[in-house]
Design a protein around this nucleic acid. Structure first.
Lengths: 210, 210
DNA sequence: CCATGTGAACAAATTCACAGCA
DNA sequence: TGCTGTGAATTTGTTCACATGG
């Protein structure tokens, strides 16, 4: 079906946003929505919505708009959410725990199936659905639980080593919350998330305009 | 001094990244760095580094490069990090707690000075430097502690109401982790962070290319 | 010399505006 | 009529290549 052309990261992230918006409308009982209505409701650009969607076929009906449910289903599939993605969370501090519980009741595209921590105090703890295992078990766990994505929620000093171990275990998709530059590998996709960048963006607009 | 021209969000976020890189080099004892060396080390583009920095004056020395310490200081100031920014965290679950402790030992540009939660079980708990206070105390706390930024780490149902209360208390900068569309106000800056968007970006590149 | 700073060339992304279809 | 889908126009962002100056 959908032979997907090249897609920019900006467009890709907007598709996630659109999907979120559609789910909200769906919960409100809406069945049809136009690009203009979507844009008004969620502060988006109608032309951009249409452009973004048009890359992947003709999902809308002229004069009417889009079917909330079927467009949602299309985006869901397009984003690779039909498959279930098993995750391991490395570092079960507060942030790691937050992700474990967050991805418990989620719509099951993502599921944390294991969590490991270097701290013996934390090993054995129950967080969301999982029991914390020792860091040494990382490779074993990845292989036995069919894990395909790793989440790094550990201090920066430990991040690179854990990254190497995840990659050596066959993981090719990593969400990294540690503020370090992980070594680049063309076959591994890393998504870096740095909270300080978000805060600094807010701080910039509060600076003294001297 | 620095009369700052308009700056794109992309450039702004890169400045944060540059600052992070400079701090690492500083810790390693480097005193000078060229755009090329920075780019090699951190997988950036040398021309872009120069363009980005050149917006704000001539920080480099031709034939030499940039002074790690003084460029760091410039960026620090430029990003509004000389001032201390007091934050309130609304919702002290795992994610809220993570932010409280994360911004404990930080370099003091950002400080969580208060945390509130609707759950009586959590009120009185000690997290990082702060003692959790009841949600009702939100306005009082904001006004008495000189708070200028709010962080929303609460379930989506509660987010809009807390947003309104933060804004009514005078807060104009908000970091929002709840997956809702907060009402737009031209005088309030909201930075939305949605973990699912990050995960879906990774999932997209794992989808079945049918 | 060597690396910055910068205008000019290029590329990407967004918006416009309208043809085409239910 | 009304909204999609889309080429064309515009704006924004990136890269190139070189003149400039320590």
């Amino acid at each position: 079906m959908s032979l997907i052309p090249d897609i920019s990261p900006l467009t890709l992230n907007r598709l996630s946003v659109y999907l979120r918006c559609l789910r909200i409308l769906e919960a409100e009982g809406e069945t049809k929505v136009s690009s203009g209505a979507l844009a008004d409701r969620f502060e988006l650009s109608p032309a951009q919505i249409r452009k973004d969607l048009a890359h992947f076929g003709e999902f809308g009906v002229r004069g009417v708009g889009y079917d909330v449910e079927s467009l949602g289903a299309h985006l869901h599939e397009l984003l690779g959410l039909n498959a279930q993605h098993n995750l391991v969370v490395v570092g079960i501090g507060n942030l790691g725990s937050a992700l474990c519980s967050f991805l418990g009741f989620n719509d099951s595209s993502f599921r944390v199936v294991a969590g490991v921590d270097a701290d013996p105090e934390r090993v054995g703890k129950q967080v969301g659905d999982i029991t914390v295992q020792p860091l040494e078990a990382l490779e074993t766990v990845v292989e036995s639980a069919g894990i395909e994505m790793g989440v790094l929620t550990i201090p920066p000093e430990a991040a690179t080593q854990c990254y190497e171990r995840l990659v050596a275990s066959g993981i090719r998709s990593i969400l990294n919350f540690a503020a370090v530059q992980l070594p680049h590998r063309s076959d591994v996709r890393v998504k870096n998330v740095d909270f300080r960048v978000f805060l600094e963006e807010l701080a910039f607009f509060r600076r003294d305009p001297s």
